[in-house]
């Protein structure tokens, strides 16, 4: 087990380098002058452009600039934003909020998504099954920004049940509405995956065997079927957690959550390349670690897969 984890950690190194290089190249290759538009209707002072170009090594060829950046990263130095703030500190501030938001969303996925999936999967073709199918479908087909705006309008502005936005106070209660909106899309996958997986496993040989052995129905479903059915679901939720961390751009924008998605999107529009690469690098790292964790749980859920 320890060796497996060590090997996986080693494997992350090329992945992190590969991903960050792609992002770094994309961000600094953004068309045009990264300082255009920073000075209103006129070009920026030449001295300013020169200073910034030197500061971010923009004159060097791309691979060289990237290596310098990577070197700084290894020393724990994420660089500075145009505003002169430490990227590292900004990330430390934004991540907890986003993680919290993602956890709230995951909670919704688990409770509602898996719950609905199990109900539907156990009674295929029933009213509940159809209800789950149709409702998840409706949710999938509506863009997040519409769901977000509508819920914000009614629950936040009209009825005042939840705060309309989150702002600086990222308490659990404030995050319920954006958390639900964020989860809405994945809810549908989780429900459908659970349903499909459960239905398939119920016909699997080992379940037949268990039933044939005379094990009680509850035990068969509760232990054997459920455990195996949840494997793809766990894979999905684990992957989704990583995606939610950086994919909450729209939701964080609508509900003004000061998280990573918000930070990255603002940085893309203001061309703050250091911020974008820094944030995405951390995103990739977190994501890979989460995945490792998922794989470990995977092995635990399905004894046929061993990490010897």
């Amino acid at each position: 087990m320890g060796r497996y984890v060590a090997r996986r950690l080693l494997q992350m190194i090329p992945v992190v380098i590969g991903t960050t290089f792609i992002i770094y190249a994309l961000v600094w290759a953004l068309p045009g002058d990264p300082f255009a538009g920073r000075c209103g209707a006129r070009p920026c002072p030449a001295a300013y452009v020169a200073d910034m170009t030197a500061k971010y090594n923009l004159d060097d060829p791309l691979p060289l600039a990237y290596i310098q950046y990577l070197g700084n990263l290894l020393r724990g130095d994420f660089g500075e934003t145009f505003q002169g703030l430490s990227v590292g500190e900004e990330l430390l501030r934004a991540y907890p909020t986003t993680v919290k938001l993602a956890l709230v969303a995951i909670a919704f996925e688990i409770i509602i998504g898996i719950g609905a999936g199990i109900l539907a999967g156990l009674r295929r073709g029933s009213f509940i099954d159809n209800l789950v199918l149709v409702s998840t479908l409706v949710v999938v087909s509506i863009p997040v920004f519409v769901i977000g705006s509508v819920l914000q309008l009614f629950l936040g502005m009209r009825w005042g049940i939840f705060p309309a936005t989150v702002g600086g106070d990222a308490s659990l209660y404030n995050l319920i509405l954006p958390g639900f909106v964020l989860a809405s899309l994945s809810l549908a996958y989780v429900a459908r995956l659970t349903r499909t997986s459960l239905a398939e496993n119920r016909r699997a040989d080992y379940v037949r065997t268990a039933v044939a052995k005379g094990l009680p129905q509850r035990r068969v479903i509760g232990i054997h079927t459920m455990r195996n059915s949840l494997i793809p679901v766990v894979t999905f939720i684990g992957a989704d957690f990583g995606a939610l961390l950086g994919g909450a751009i729209v939701t964080e924008g609508i509900f003004n959550v000061p998280g990573v998605g918000n930070l990255i999107f603002r940085s893309i529009t203001t061309r703050d390349g250091v911020m974008v690469t820094g944030a995405v690098t951390v995103l990739v790292l977190v994501f890979l670690l989460v995945n490792l964790l998922v794989d470990l749980i995977y092995g635990w859920l399905d004894p046929r897969i061993s990490h010897g």
């Binding site: 936040g156 936005t165 924008g253 609508i254 509900f255 603002r266």
Partner: peptide, 28 residues
């Protein structure tokens, strides 16, 4: 000075009395 990435969110807040002053009302 509360930072909003999207002015629509600020509008929602001022309607809900959670923001005191909004200096520009967005299209929404």
């Amino acid at each position: 000075y509360r930072v909003y990435a999207d002015l629509d969110a600020a509008y929602a807040d001022v309607v809900a009395n959670q923001l005191d002053i909004l200096d520009k009302i967005p299209p929404v």
